[in-house]
Design a protein around this nucleic acid. Sequence first.
RNA 1: GUGGGCGUAGCUCAGCUGGUAGAGCACUCGGUUGUGGUCCGAGAUGUCGCGGGUUCGAGCCCCGUCGCUCACCCCA
Length: 423
Amino acid sequence: MTKKIQIQAPKGVSEYAPPRSRAFEWIRESLIRPAKLAGYQLIELPVFEDTELFSRGVGESTDVVSKEMYTFEDRGGRSITLRPEGTAGVMRAVIEHGLDRAALPVKIWYSGAFFRAERPQAGRYRQFYQVGIEAIGVNDDALDAEVIAIADAGFKSIGLKAYRLELTSLGDAQSRAAHKVDLVKFIETLDLDEATEARAHINPLRLFDDKREEVKSSMANAPLLLDYLSDASKASFENVQKHLRSLGVAFVINPRMVRGLDYYTGTTFEFVHENLGAQSGIGGGGRYDGLMSQLGGQDLSGIGFGLGVDRALLAAEAEGIDFSHLQGTDVFIIPLGELAMETALAIAGTLRAGEISVDIAFGDRALKGAMKMADKSGSRFVIVLGESEIDSQSVELKEMSTGNSLSVTLATLRDHLVSVLKK
RNA sequence: GUGGGCGUAGCUCAGCUGGUAGAGCACUCGGUUGUGGUCCGAGAUGUCGCGGGUUCGAGCCCCGUCGCUCACCCCA
């Protein structure tokens, strides 16, 4: 006798089964809809790429690349990595297909699963979902602002309120270089443990992101990059803010914000939710000047964002957003007997062809049980279909929320429902 | 990689100082003939994560192990 071992999902993956999957699907759609309405076009990419794409694109010095990638060798001996983020892959595809040789900017959206080999915790998964956009080839402050506004519109459309948009600028190369000199000087005066010291050495900016109180307080007086911006960078950053204000997008400046990926330059931003756990970032992005040329393409700038679908769902749940409108079909048909089932199937087909969703009570259950099913399904209307209805070719269309019903002939049922459901 | 918490019916959990298991929700059927949401009745469901130890006896104690979870690091 072999012992049965229950197979479980791999550690740390996020999966969504009904009924929660309804909310997930709706949120994913809602988050990306503003981008579609703004002229962004879909790109479907592989979930795995040549490992070098990420080490070169995202940056060898990032934690994401150095210790969080799912990397393996394929049968041809190539080093393959499950994508940990979206931007590098989009850049690769844009270069590979020459999309950047058309009119600029190239405006792309994507949606899919990403992978990081981290220790899971609330809101942090090994497989997680993001939607994102990239606008490549135009350096325009108005575009920066619009990209941010699109992300904000996505969050607003699902009803989120308890979040803030944090904004900063990493400036141009010379601004960053000047700041780095002083920052390193400052950090050298601190008494840090070895691991933190090492991190500071790789990227001193990362110390701003440390959550430990002692590190936070010792960084309180650290020089801020925003104070080192060149005149041009400063003007550009102010311009982005001006556009955001006129768009009515609320934001706060966070000069201590740090992004985890190395390619960011200029405008960077993060959406932070207020009642999630430690993993409170629900989306973020920024401008990246050198990424494309780094990957062997033209020297074009780009800006984009990634929004966490899993976290947006958690945030929506934390805010108590109501998903009940997502459940149930428009119509639930209860056939009584075999002939009625045949008719029910035919009616369902006709209605569905008119974009009306229809469920049927299968399995020959008692009327009372079927009514309970209809009730629990959340369907808006129910139709009981028996001999008398078939004889008369008309049904009682009962609205579950009110209990009222209306007699409608089968011939006019579809048109009637289309007009009722339209509003 | 480091630290804390937890693993009991499908779900949420209770189980007192050790005496071989319970509630609520959900589910099925019923409360007379073709109409749900409330109410009432009946029913099904667990190798108490796994392995070892202590004990006459362990869901409760000890050791190990696996898993989940939260936090650090980092990030969506």
